[in-house]
Nucleic acid binder design. Structure first.
Lengths: 235, 235
DNA sequence: TCATTTCTTAACGTGCTTTTAACGAGAAAT
DNA sequence: ATTTCTCGTTAAAAGCACGTTAAGAAATGA
């Protein structure tokens, strides 16, 4: 590890902005701040940061526009921050290309963890095939992509075709929330509707097979109103 | 009928072609011949031989094109023969996926040795669960690649050509799932469709011969919707 | 040539997979 | 507090993949 990662924080409330700046700086990041959309867009295009932390509630423009704008020319990871009463926005944000989201209020530990995840994904995920080679491990769970098999505590777990696709997809983006919509498009194709019952049934079956306590999952978490997230590989 | 290896010889000069045909036949190989590139490609895709002996100097097309074409769907060993003593051709051929190279003139002893080597390599190269070179073992099942025979509890099990090819192919990738599509391309050539009935019938016959309980197989497993997988020897 | 083996195609039943439906618990919204 | 939405769970229906048998076609060998 050599250079500091650069983060641009977009947030209109001074109090929060200052806290975030301190948190990131003390963790060794290079931080720039913006207090409105216009300023944010200019800074992003001139600094080309490694990550953007974006509050969706801005005075001058919709934060979603910023995502769109940035995504038109870059895949810089974007983590969205939203107030609890704007739940729908975060789903839209993810579908527009945001990488993760946080709901206020959030702890610094969680924030930093999400940032690390996003940065790691951005750096090593250029070759998407790479993720499907070798194995994925988290806890007692192992996914062997070559053998197309899933193991729990070393024992083979039989998954159906769709179940395996779902698990493999989540593991490929482990640590990241995948929206129901995105997942369904990946597995059932673009013509699938927005009814996610099928996905729920599949998830129940998957959890019964891979989780020790399906009601309190350790590997695949539900982000209510948004989607699913797989626990991260520890290395 | 005994299980002979099938070789396709591609050579435009009649005198050499005849000699080669005789040499191989008297060594117990099943031989087919082709005198130009077009003929060669058709024969290869329809016969799916175990080895291709290819003269690079053909009347109608560059021999290198043939290597490319075959490598797009199969890893059948290809031994290249060339009168040109150019190092460049040799390197190109090998880079395109040829397995070995002979320069005219060559002796029959060397030729046969190279062929044996290539066939041995093809049958069981990159595999760790082999007790002895040229042999695959799992449970009571033994595959002898040199003899092209399969044994169960030490007793010879008679498999037909295609049945043997299927078992050998699966054993070569033991532990991994091979898709129906892949297997069919390897055994029946690139022009086989996506209808996998033939494979299913063959598998039923194979299982009746090698499995103790065909309905609950111990050696070849079905991955529904995907393909077949051969058991690995446990360490 | 005939006899035998091997390959391919066809047909069908079984069991697994996928999908749909229904309901209850719990979170979120009002 | 109550109403609404979301999600997990179970069960049943629908759909389909696979294994199996048999019979015809093709190849092989005597």
């Amino acid at each position: 590890m050599s250079n500091k990662h650069t983060i641009i924080v977009v947030e209109d409330e001074n109090s929060i902005l200052n806290i975030l700046e301190m948190v990131f700086k003390s963790s060794g990041y290079q931080v720039y701040t913006a207090k409105n959309g216009k300023e944010a867009l200019m800074m992003i295009s001139s600094y080309c940061p490694d990550l953007i932390l974006l509050d969706l509630g801005l005075p001058d423009m919709d934060g979603l526009k910023i995502i769109q704008s940035v995504r038109s020319w870059s895949s810089i990871p974007i983590i969205v921050v939203s107030a609890r009463n704007h739940e729908k926005d975060k789903v839209t944000a993810l579908d527009l290309g945001a990488d993760d989201y946080l709901t206020k209020p959030f702890g610094t530990a969680e924030l930093l963890a999400r940032v690390r995840t996003a940065l790691r994904h951005a750096s090593g995920d250029n070759d998407k095939n790479k993720a499907y080679e070798g194995t994925f491990k988290v806890g007692a769970l192992t996914i062997d992509y070559d053998k197309r098999q899933v193991f729990k505590n070393g024992e083979n777990v039989h998954l159906t075709q769709n179940e395996y696709k779902i698990v493999a997809l989540l593991s490929k983006y482990s640590g990241k929330v995948l929206t129901y919509d995105f997942m369904m498009k990946q597995i059932w194709g673009p013509n699938i509707g927005s009814d996610n019952r099928i996905l729920r049934v599949n998830m129940a079956n998957i959890r019964r097979k891979i989780e020790t306590q399906p009601a309190d999952p350790a590997y695949i978490f539900t982000e209510i109103g948004v989607g699913y997230r797989m626990a991260e590989e520890k290395g």
